[in-house]
Design a protein around this nucleic acid. Sequence first.
DNA 1: AAAATAACTTGACCTACATCAATGCGCCAC
DNA 2: GTGGCGCATTGATGTAGGTCAAGTTATTTT
Lengths: 207, 207
Amino acid sequence: MPHTLETGLAALKQVMNTKVVFTEAEWADIASRWHYHFLPKGEHQIMPGQMEEYIYFIISGATRIYHISAKGEDITLAFSYDNTFTGDYGSFLTRRKATFYNQAVSDCHLLRCKYIDINELHDKYQKMERWTRLGLEELLVGMLVRQVEMLSAPAEERFARLLRQSPHCFQLYTQKHIASYLGIQPETLSRLKRRLKKTQDTRLRNN
Amino acid sequence: MPHTLETGLAALKQVMNTKVVFTEAEWADIASRWHYHFLPKGEHQIMPGQMEEYIYFIISGATRIYHISAKGEDITLAFSYDNTFTGDYGSFLTRRKATFYNQAVSDCHLLRCKYIDINELHDKYQKMERWTRLGLEELLVGMLVRQVEMLSAPAEERFARLLRQSPHCFQLYTQKHIASYLGIQPETLSRLKRRLKKTQDTRLRNN
DNA sequence: AAAATAACTTGACCTACATCAATGCGCCAC
DNA sequence: GTGGCGCATTGATGTAGGTCAAGTTATTTT
């Protein structure tokens, strides 16, 4: 029986142990606080105005965190998929109302853990506090890289880099959403794709 | 005697206590690991390729964290000033070589703490681990807000918001640096300023 | 205080990307 | 299958902001 609590916890354990190694007793306590949850394709895990009560771990599936701007534009902020965490961290961490949408773009098999459980774990185990700290550090470094790229690289380069570093995203998400993640319009992404293919074709022909 | 170790530690204590309240004994241990450092205007606290050995607390002064892109563009990522922390967090946290410059734009009176001391404090006190976690959470939320703004708001709005929320930055930093922080050219910022003043003037005249 | 240097302003022109619009294509519903 | 709908492509045109250049004003440096 794939994608249920057991297999999910095994995946979660492996992911968590890459940062901090928990004892079996600690792990048992942690594991007991995560619960299976299913989110069908198209449904929202959270919407602006709600409180983010859980942090989510994706066993399998894909979600998209986005924001609707003042002008009504749909802006994709992050992609989440197998073996990654998701949710509106801002809301979850600060206990303020969510500002983002998080939508399943395919059926999602999830584990989730309540805020109070995460908090209790933080109180109970220094290691848990450290695990979260290390996770936040990683997130922060990633966001800095993205920030630099958005400010310094033109659309074409940002696209090329995403294609190189996260090709699977082009399978999981529509071009519309990838475009908004890259900060451009779908039409522009379409044209970039064609241009890139053309230059690759001519390169092939010349070699 | 202003801006020396004592006054600096008093400021640091106050800032740290807003997140986690330390006992006097804990604080004494923490305080003993921070040391005064002076960075004259124009000098760099760190440059790409170096290892960030310290985390810095600014008693007084201002620095600018920036990056030189592949095309040679100077991109300002963050401003730091009195009572804030600074440094290349990415390098400091991950122990990899710095990718950013951090330059004093005015004489800086600093406190700094070595990586190993921070680490020892993390090992020794769960509270310290929590303090760092909460600090990272705050940083992360701020970066998310900025990311959304960069993707959704046009230059004029980003400028107006910075002017509203951080007017002191316009005293501390040159327009060139503020422009690069906003993701525009200095010429564009100059034009935006004029346009904004014009609309404000007409509004005044009509009231 | 003069000279040198850097910052800011303004104008003319240019380009990357947006917008609008038309057409074609896949995909799900029934 | 076939009707419908959202997604992708392509073309024509618009525009925010970039680039280049010249002049002005601050700010250092000597």
